[in-house]
């Protein structure tokens, strides 16, 4: 037993030190594990169902209701919720459930567009700032600070006033307000990934700067940014609804969640269902989106 040696300095941090349970029977084990994951999270299951229903309503509203959201039956105006009209009817006798279902398409389109604007513009900004550093970083991030300094709703109101009315413009206005958030997350991620050994290894292997940026940095930084997009989704549903509530959204009689709440406001005293059900739909969608985003965030870690 002469001269035994071997100090492993990183033994404490090496991931293989953690007991990694090898699956006994891979297929069955994985299936059981996945099933258990969902069973332990009933809230998440409910959230997935809610978001799934909203997405289906946006694409195939006929699946949920056969009534026309635009034509009313004057004789049946302002009826309360019943088996025939689950959400009741409005002042023109239109079925509110049909209007809410058909409103999903417009509201979701606006939401998706807004998130896409924020995601693309914000990520590009963050990527540039993080990758180039120095002056560029300073200028871009100070711009982001300015954007963040103005309250989001106020900013989107200002933008939509300048752009004019309509769902697309509302979406762009809301999207612009979320650019700064995306830029910050992306920049932080780019800085983290740029500091990793495998990025240095790629440089040492002789890879060019832009190739390292596109092939290593961007894909590895994208995860948390996409999670942030999911988190933003809920907030954007709310912001889009708020602007359409204020009358910047779709022209009547086209249904949109925010404008449904706004129209019902005049009848609040006599017909509570006109504001309550679209409002609850918005709230359920926002909460469900947040729950899913949180679960996803947990997976990313």
């Amino acid at each position: 037993m002469n001269g035994v040696n071997g100090v492993t300095r990183v033994a404490g941090t090496a991931p293989h030190q953690a007991p990694s349970p090898p699956a006994v029977t891979p297929e069955a084990g994985r299936l059981a594990a996945r099933l258990g994951y969902w069973l332990r999270r009933p809230g998440l299951v409910l959230s997935v169902l809610v978001v799934g229903a909203v997405l289906t309503a946006a694409i195939l509203p006929e699946l949920f209701t056969s009534r026309d959201p635009l034509t009313g039956v004057p004789a049946e105006k302002l009826r309360g919720p019943s088996a025939e009209h689950p959400f009741g009817t409005d002042q023109l006798g239109r079925d509110l459930f049909a209007r809410t279902v058909h409103g999903a398409a417009l509201s979701l389109r606006a939401t998706s567009l807004a998130v896409a604007v924020g995601l693309v513009a914000g990520s590009a900004m963050g990527l540039l700032a993080g990758a180039l550093g120095g002056r560029v970083d300073d200028v871009l991030m100070r711009c982001a600070d300015v954007l963040l300094a103005i309250p989001a709703l106020l900013l989107s109101l200002a933008i939509v006033t300048a752009l004019g009315f309509g769902t697309t413009r509302v979406a762009i206005a809301v999207g612009v307000t979320s650019v700064a958030g995306f830029a910050r997350v992306m920049r932080a991620e780019v800085l983290r990934v740029r500091g990793t050994v495998y990025v240095e290894a790629a440089h040492a292997a002789g890879a060019r700067r832009h190739s390292v940026l596109l092939r290593h940095v961007l894909p590895n930084a994208a995860g948390p940014v996409l999670v942030f997009a999911a988190v933003e989704f809920g907030a954007v549903v709310l912001a889009v609804s708020a602007l359409s509530f204020l009358g910047y959204g779709a022209e009547p009689p086209t249904p949109e969640w925010g404008s449904l709440v706004s129209e019902g406001r005049d009848y609040l005293a006599g017909a509570w269902w006109l504001t309550t059900f679209p409002g609850l739909t918005i709230a359920a969608t926002v909460l469900a989106a947040n729950r899913i985003a949180r679960a996803w965030e947990g997976e990313e870690r």
């Binding site: 090496a14 991931p15 050994v197 495998y198 290593h216």
Partner: peptide, 11 residues
Amino acid sequence: YQSPYASLDPR
């Protein structure tokens, strides 16, 4: 590099 856990791009 020292740590093969860090020096390869996980993706």
